[in-house]
Design a protein around this nucleic acid. Structure first.
Length: 440
RNA sequence: CGGGGCGUAGCGCAGCCCGGUAGCGCAUCUGCUAUGGGAGCAGAGGGUCGCAGGUUCAAAUCCUGCCGCCCCGACCA
């Protein structure tokens, strides 16, 4: 992408209303634009990051055996009357009426709808286990949206729903998601710690929040320091291996880790002082097992192996990709701007023409740009007539992992510089070597 | 929903107290000179001063009502 042809409204000063660093940087880097309280448009750069986050989420859901679908944003009120949540959910639910005065709502979550879809078609335990997910915009009319897309009213959520014939099966489904989540966050460069959590209005009795530690986090969390060094299961993990998965989950839940709502000061106190970690945390995922809470009232039953019918055991599993974009920035930035972990970076490379208009640098840049583009590498080519200093500042702000600096100084020796955004390290390469270094 | 604050050009702000018909920096456009860490000079464009009503010869400024947005708290992916 040529910057001169792109849509990237970078701001030198952050709008006054933005206070936390991720919100400021997202606005300054031209990633988002606020349209109303808690409602944002994702501009091209922000959309690229969001897409990459979704891709990782999707890959790990698929790997674990979950199946993607897509449910609507608007739902009929009657569905929610069946579960009893139409009244319970309160003002957080955006209720609307259509032209025929039918009561509708903008979905804050999808347990009711997925249960309806399930019960319409699944009649036997032989079709289980089943895990269906979608990535769709949700609306929750928060009393106080804040911190940009971090706590927005409209937000993107990946929500998965598992169905099993019994509690043991449901436990395995829960474990699959648990491990998929560990992998998902790790792939984005985040250290997420699963913590015992409150179940809130979703209901149920087994629940973990996945928390990343950041000083700007909303909630206080307490855990054993050793979790920071735990290895995340690699891609060879066998999701069909019940005992194997349970062992991993047991290891990841053996030590103390709890959010403030579930905090047990006495238990925490038993951890050796040096291993106690109390910090601020950002919730990036939440998983629940809630048994038959919805399947019973909504009559989602299947034929059981022993005869008769039983209500299915369900769980739900949420990740907020739009929030994750902010969370990743909270966890990865410096004084100059964002420092994207490569897997979620909007572009891999920023190509800087340090002397636009100079035939030598122009030619070298074009050559590099063609080579990268041909290799399928995401590159943002700053071909504007800005001064070099301004280009550096903008590139540092938007935080692409690599910068390729092309100017007459280096070209005099046939070299360009390759700068790593995270560390600031620079190395000189010939054009061919630079392409080779940054490909693949 | 309780408490606090703010709405003036795309962004950051001044002007408001003490009414006289809108200004600064950045950004944008034109020209020239520049070009390895947010360039210089010269010129230009861009504003229903959040909205409505009132007071007044005259309102960004004073009064009333409304709307929007932000922050703290209670609640939440």
């Amino acid at each position: 992408m040529r910057l001169s042809r792109y849509f990237l409204p970078i701001l030198r000063d952050a709008p006054r209303e933005a206070e936390i660093v991720s919100h400021r940087l997202m606005l300054r880097a031209g990633m988002i634009r606020q349209e109303a309280a808690g409602i944002y448009a994702f501009l091209p750069l922000g959309h690229r990051v969001l897409s990459k986050v979704c891709r990782i989420v999707r890959e790990e859901q698929d790997r674990s055996g979950a199946i993607e679908m897509l449910m609507p944003t608007i739902q009929p009120a009657d569905l929610w009357r069946e579960s009893g949540r139409y009244d319970d959910y309160g003002k957080e639910m955006l209720r609307v009426e259509d032209r025929h005065e039918r009561e509708m709502l903008y979905g804050p979550t999808n347990e009711e709808m997925i249960t309806e879809i399930f019960r319409a078609s699944v009649k036997s335990y032989k079709q289980l286990p089943l895990n269906l997910y979608h990535i769709q915009w949700k609306f929750r009319d928060e009393v106080r949206p804040r911190f940009g897309v971090y706590r927005a009213r409209e937000f993107l959520m990946k929500d998965a729903y598992s169905f099993d014939v019994d509690a043991e099966g449901a436990r395995h489904s829960y474990n699959k998601m648990f491990i998929a989540y560990l992998r998902t966050f790790a792939r984005m460069g985040l250290k997420a710690i699963p913590m015992v959590a409150d179940t809130g209005p979703i209901g149920g009795n087994l629940s973990h929040e996945f928390i990343i530690l950041a000083s700007t986090g909303e909630s206080e969390v307490f855990c054993h320091r050793d979790y920071l060094d735990y290895e995340v299961p690699d891609e060879r993990v066998d999701f069909g291996d019940r005992a194997g998965l349970q062992k991993i989950v047991d290891r990841w839940t053996a030590l103390y880790a709890a959010t403030s709502e579930k905090h047990d000061a006495a238990a925490f106190g038993k951890i050796p002082q040096a291993k106690q970690l109390s910090a601020r945390g950002i919730e990036v995922g939440h998983i629940f097992y809630f048994g038959t809470k919805y399947s019973e009232p909504m009559k989602a039953t299947v034929a059981a192996p022993s005869g008769g019918t039983v209500p299915v055991h369900m769980g739900s599993y949420g990740i907020g990709p739009s929030r994750l974009v902010a969370a990743i920035i909270e966890a990865s930035h410096d004084e100059s701007g964002i420092v994207w972990p490569e897997p979620v970076a909007p572009f891999k490379i920023g190509l800087l023409n340090l002397k636009q208009g100079d035939s030598g640098t122009d030619a070298a840049c074009e050559k590099l740009y063609s080579a990268f583009t041909a290799g399928g590498i995401d590159v943002l080519y700053d071909d504007t007539e800005e001064r070099a200093g301004a280009k550096f500042a903008s590139m540092d702000l938007i935080g692409l992992p690599w910068q390729v600096l092309v100017g007459p100084k280096g070209l005099a020796e046939g070299k360009v510089e390759v700068k790593r955004r995270a560390s600031g390290e620079r190395e000189s390469f010939t054009l061919e070597a630079a392409v080779k270094r940054l490909s693949g």
